[in-house]
Design a protein around this nucleic acid. Structure first.
Lengths: 345, 345
DNA sequence: CGGTTCTTTCAAAACGCTTTGGATTAACGG
DNA sequence: CCGTTAATCCAAAGCGTTTTGAAAGAACCG
């Protein structure tokens, strides 16, 4: 059933039927009702390509997902993010269009999305420092918003980010308050902007208290369970091992806990952990009492807010860039406790 | 730059330019080359909606993702699945179109995808027993393939599935061989077809050896870390507690391990675990030696194979339904060992 | 050299919608 | 009752492709 058939069936012109369905004022309420009913009855809804061709819009938002950094890994936060975004798209009649890429040709993908007119805008994931995609998208004139920020990019653009620096600074401060002095950081890959900011927060807190940085306590890798495990395992095996870990992902934190327990130590007593928690649906940090003390921020909420930001931006052209900086909560769990006292000489 | 402009620029008709670009034989090689170069130089690629309108195809595949069963949870295997599928789409010039839904209106979504002509086919995720979506899609005449199967649906349809029954049967057999008699099953939700089949395999193995089923050793829920933890914790606290766990997801298995270690027991010595492992990129089951003994099958490979199946099906109409049944590997890790001997009276 | 067959190109129709610019009818005011 | 305005509706153009049906030119054959 297409518009032509429906309009013939109703004895009306295509114009009138189209207008009735799209809520234009110049159609009598009685006929609008008739049209709506007929459309409903015959299960008519306008062909998405014809509509798009006529209006010049696709009503679709693009997400380009890098299977990150050579390891072919899909960021686990991704599922929850798009669950949030998908809600908003549904409510606003947008489609969500995904493209998976292995990094190499990501810029070509954006170019192509633009020239083919496949999407009305994109959400940029996983911004790096000095990210080259941002100038590209601006040059292309493609509406976009960034999940995160890109240090070193001076151009104006819209973003939504968690205050990673202050979160990790507070977390480090918290551990320092508990008496910890050897605090390890198991960070994400530090070309990623968020990881860079987290390290900065960690640095700031330490240096402000005059605690020296120890390179042996720093790692930066893709945030898998195994990374947390092996990183912690090696550090704990060294003399002068850390009494606390600051971890960039709850998945890696699970690995750290494994390494701790493998050594017969107890988390929260012998070794403390503070992790960042994106509140993923299948990795809830405990039910009532959190397992891990964590800097917490819902990535699903981020998906909701950011997609809404993009839709607004698309519908109000040449509006100013929007910025949202979310502060992470610091929630207390049972993974932290006072630093163990050193045996006196 | 659109086709009209490009053809004027070349002094050719739109027809010829279109044909040249689409590789039709009736255009001289020399002019094809000229056209290709000009298109390249001016960054032309055909508008996706216009092309779709003309051809009657969208070159897009739909994935309807339920934020499962009320808990608002996104299945964690989903990211890796679409990473696999995305590769194939990219290679075949298809777009991937996602819709997130909270279950209630899923059938409406399929109806709508069809009437709006938004996609050329869909991949059906998370089939339940007697799944009503399958007859619906057949009725709609929408090409589709199923990731899994639906017991109780007799209609012909294409699917790709892991042999969940035989995998869990083998896993159970393996534990029985090690002397375990009290084997707990932490299953997924049993309205899901895969969970039903796993339980069947578990049943078969036990009854064949004359080991009675104990309802106290069965759970069926959404496969979170917390589910594994609390399920195992409660069972281990009971008298006559299980000596082995069969777990439906590596995420829940992490929770089971936590419960085991919390009681001061050692995994693989005091209590064994066999888990299903979808080989998610961020939850690798150990690096060289697997942590968990597991029934293993790559969900990313499944994504690749299934999307290819769908594309073939779309391109060869009224072909017979295709079926692929993958056998899971049973890989030995360090989470299993002989059943501990009972203290003699 | 005339007729036939390829090869190469093109003009125009078609895809299914929105939107422009009128046209027609109804309502209103004096 | 007539001119003016408002309320409804419509025919046709336009969106950017692909594809149909034809035409023009080249090549071939006897």
């Amino acid at each position: 059933m297409n518009l032509k058939e429906l309009s013939q069936l109703l004895g009306l012109s295509q114009t009138t039927v189209s207008r009735a369905l799209n809520g234009y004022p110049e159609v009598k309420e009685a006929t609008r009702k008739k049209v709506a009913e007929a459309a409903q009855a015959h299960g008519y809804s306008p062909n998405v390509r014809a509509k798009g061709l006529a209006t010049g819009r696709s009503n679709a938002i693009g997400h380009v997902i890098p299977t990150a950094n050579s390891h072919e890994m899909v960021n686990p936060i991704f599922g929850d993010f798009i669950a949030g975004a998908g809600e908003i798209y549904m409510a606003n009649n947008y489609e969500m269009m995904l493209t998976i890429t292995d990094d190499a040709n990501e810029e070509d993908i954006y170019r192509n999305l633009k020239t083919r007119g496949a999407v009305d805008g994109v959400i940029l994931h996983g911004p790096k420092m000095n990210d080259t995609r941002i100038p590209l998208l601006i040059e292309l004139g493609m509406p976009f918003v960034v999940h995160g920020r890109a240090s070193g990019v001076d151009l104006p653009y819209s973003w939504l980010d968690v205050n990673n620096r202050s979160a990790f600074r507070r977390a480090t401060d918290f551990l320092l308050d508990l008496g910890h002095r050897r605090i390890a950081l198991l960070n994400g890959i530090e070309t990623m902007d968020f990881a860079h900011r987290r390290r900065t927060g960690y640095h700031q807190a330490l240096t402000e208290r005059g605690v020296p940085l120890d390179p042996a306590l720093l790692r930066s890798e893709e945030m898998t369970e195994h990374y947390g495990y092996s990183g912690a395992r090696e550090m704990l095996a060294q003399p002068n091992s850390p009494t606390a870990f600051l971890v960039s992902s709850i998945i890696s934190a699970l690995g750290v806990r494994r390494a701790i327990e493998e050594r017969g130590l107890k988390m929260g007593r012998d070794v403390s952990i503070v992790t960042h928690d994106d509140t993923l649906s299948y990795l809830a940090n405990g039910e009532t009492v959190p397992i891990f003390t964590a800097t917490r921020s819902s990535v699903r909420d981020a998906g909701r807010a950011l997609s809404q930001m993009l839709i607004t931006l698309i519908n109000t052209p040449n509006s100013d860039p929007q910025h949202t900086l979310l502060e992470a909560e610091l929630t207390l769990g049972s993974s932290t406790g006072p630093a163990p006292q050193l045996a006196s000489p």
